[in-house]
């Protein structure tokens, strides 16, 4: 006996006549094309509003302005794709930045101080991952706890004091550029490019989608879910620490209250970029587009001379419209 022919052809039939359309529908679920269109529209408007908007200096300024949030957002995107959440990134940034500033102040060579800062990020990530994987604690609660603990420890160790970094090499990392492009913008783009390239090509990436989609299914398929989850939080922690270094290099100081509340900007960029809060879906490049939109809005409001209070309102409205438009577009695509 062979397969009942009519049954399978009917199954397959849905791909045959509308195959291309179906293909587009499935792709559009994740794509950030709509957002990109909004971004371009906004850029066109702003270039009419301010003669400074479309200048090389300003575009690099936008890049500088989003570098810190962006590097953190890469790790956050991965964690959220894997069905998790990391609220502790701001605290990790502060702790890592403080550690680096302190070590540099003691005369420790830069690479060692950098490594120590990244190690702190990795340690926080390990703690987050272990608590969530083995303690079976909800990631929101677990990372809210580590947010407080890590921030608190930064205060305890520093006595609430800020540290000023005057190492010229470190400052150059924050403000210097090569061929006119700031180092931190290069670092930002490189971080995005690296992970955008890795996600579809490695088990690291594929399992993030699998675990976020269905941790149970991944577990049954033999994926060591707990270990991979830890790996994602470690990635997030390490990238947060890297962003903490950029923060210190850029502002010239490290303080325990640094990056307070930055997780909101980070998560906004991730969600704008189309990553699903329920996990399983999202794109690193989508986050980049979301981040750019945030950066352009922030920059444009200043260039347009919008008063501070209205800036917040306008920002909120633009973000809401962007998400709404994206949602409508997606629903239309799915119904099609």
């Amino acid at each position: 006996m062979t397969l009942p022919a009519d049954a399978t052809t009917r199954e397959a039939g849905s791909t045959a006549p509308g195959g291309f359309r179906r293909f587009i529908v499935e792709r559009s679920r994740d794509s950030s094309l709509g957002l990109l269109a909004i971004l371009l529209l906004l850029a066109v408007i702003l270039s009419f509003v301010s003669p400074y908007f479309l200048t090389a200096t300003n575009l690099l300024n936008i890049g500088r302005g989003i570098a810190i949030v962006g590097i953190v957002a890469v790790g956050e995107t991965i964690v959220i794709i894997a069905g998790g959440f990391d609220l502790s990134v701001g605290s990790t940034m502060a702790a890592a930045g403080m550690a680096a500033a302190w070590l540099i102040g003691l005369g420790i060579p830069l690479p060692v101080a950098f490594a120590a800062a990244i190690a702190i990020g990795i340690a926080v990530g390990l703690a987050n991952g272990a608590i969530i994987s083995y303690g079976r604690i909800n990631p929101l609660i677990a990372t809210l706890a580590t947010l407080a603990i890590v921030r608190g420890l930064s205060y305890v160790i520093s006595g609430g004091r800020e540290l000023v970094v005057s190492d010229p090499a470190f400052q150059a990392f924050g403000v210097g550029s090569v061929a006119g492009i700031p180092y931190i913008v290069i670092l930002l783009v490189a971080t995005f490019a690296l992970f955008a390239w890795l996600m579809p090509r490695t088990r690291f990436g594929r399992y993030a989608y699998a675990i976020g989609s269905s941790a149970k299914a991944a577990q049954r398929a033999g994926v060591p879910v707990k270990q991979w989850r830890i790996a994602y939080y470690v990635t997030s922690g390490a990238l947060a620490a890297l962003a903490g270094l950029v923060f210190v290099a850029r502002t010239g100081n490290a303080q325990p209250s640094a990056a307070l509340g930055i997780e909101l900007d980070v998560i906004t960029a991730v969600i704008l970029g189309g990553t699903s809060l329920s996990g399983g879906r999202g794109r690193i490049w989508g986050t980049f587009v979301g981040l750019l939109l945030l950066g352009v809005v922030n920059n444009g409001l200043i260039l347009a001379g919008v008063p501070a209070f209205w800036q917040q309102v306008v920002k909120g409205v633009i973000l809401l419209l962007a998400v709404l438009y994206d949602e409508i577009r997606r629903n239309r695509a799915e119904e099609a």
Partner: peptide, 19 residues
């Protein structure tokens, strides 16, 4: 026990990917 967000090939090889 399928992952709805992954494609067919990824599900077929989930946990035992060819590398």
């Amino acid at each position: 026990a399928l992952c709805g967000d992954l494609d067919v090939a990824a599900n077929v090889f989930l946990g035992r990917e060819r590398r």
